[in-house]
């Protein structure tokens, strides 16, 4: 009896591993197909612009509001801790560095995954479920270059811009709480910030991070949608998986990138 249970368990593990590796391979092939098929998204730029509207512009509100509140909370919490050491003038550099290096790209990517990524997955999953994608193939229209690639490039373009806006609004939020409400000195707030934040080291690295996150989140969302079983349940599962996988991948990638970028400088 026992050896049959063990057999089932082993088979389960093997099944999961083979499945996972197979999906990863399919995902990589899908990513390559997007890159190969992305000529049309630049030749017919209005396709991409339309998708930038849906992924980027529609995410603006949530990004700006969250950025403002994150910055304000950073201002409050940072002030609470810094004033214990009598260095509340460093509030500006604390807010700016944490936003530009980490919180801006990461939180913007997480919000982007839940706002735009899930929408992309649901849309493509439904297109597949209602056989629109199959219909395109019947008409000799490549669905990858017509439907998938424009969304990919729209996501990759929007993400760094959204992250930059998140950070900028967050710094303003920190300024609002720190300087306007609490009364930290304006001059030291900005000058300490300028002294601490380096263009190449902090801002460019933050932008690189957000570009990488943009690629990851959009590719995951597109793949989950394209790979979803063409049923209502399948699409709903795929949407959930998009958000969960993107969040994990973004946080994991963030760790790896941070190790490379800020190794004890």
């Amino acid at each position: 009896m026992a050896h049959r249970k063990v057999g089932f368990g082993l088979r389960g593990i093997g099944h999961a591993v083979v499945n996972g590796v197979g999906r990863l391979g399919y995902a990589s092939r899908f990513f390559l197909m997007i890159l190969i098929g992305s000529g049309a998204s630049f030749r017919r730029i209005h396709l991409t612009i339309r998708e930038i509207y849906f992924t980027g512009v529609m995410s603006l509100i949530i990004i700006l509001v969250s950025g403002l509140f994150v910055g304000m909370v950073l201002g409050l919490q940072g002030y609470e801790t810094l004033q214990k050491y009598g260095s509340e003038s460093a509030l500006g550099s604390l807010v700016a560095l944490s936003l530009v290096r980490e919180l801006g790209p990461v939180l913007a990517a997480l919000l982007f995954a839940s706002r735009a990524g899930s929408a992309i997955t649901a849309e493509i999953g439904l297109m597949k479920a209602t056989e629109q994608i199959a219909a395109m193939e019947m008409m000799a229209v490549d669905p990858i270059s017509r439907v998938v690639a424009p969304r990919f490039w729209a996501g990759v373009t929007s993400m760094p811009l959204l992250a930059a806006m998140f950070s900028a609004v967050g710094v303003f939020g920190g300024y609002l709480v720190g300087v306007v409400f609490i009364g930290v000195d304006v001059g030291s707030f900005w000058s300490q910030m300028e002294a601490a934040v380096d263009f190449r080291q902090d801002i460019v690295n933050g932008v690189i991070k957000s570009v990488v996150f943009g690629i990851a989140v959009t590719a995951i969302a597109l793949f989950e949608g394209y790979d979803a079983p063409p049923t209502a349940e399948g699409v709903s599962h795929a949407t959930t998986r998009t958000v969960v996988t993107s969040a994990l991948v973004v946080l994991g990638l963030d760790f790896i990138l941070t190790v490379f970028m800020f190794r004890g400088v």
């Binding site: 760094p160 811009l161 950070s167 710094v171 300028e194 380096d198 263009f199 801002i203």
Partner: peptide
């Protein structure tokens, strides 16, 4: 936003 980050926040 990027320009603000570069010139106002950064150095």
């Amino acid at each position: 936003a990027l320009l603000i980050l570069a010139f106002k926040v950064g150095n």
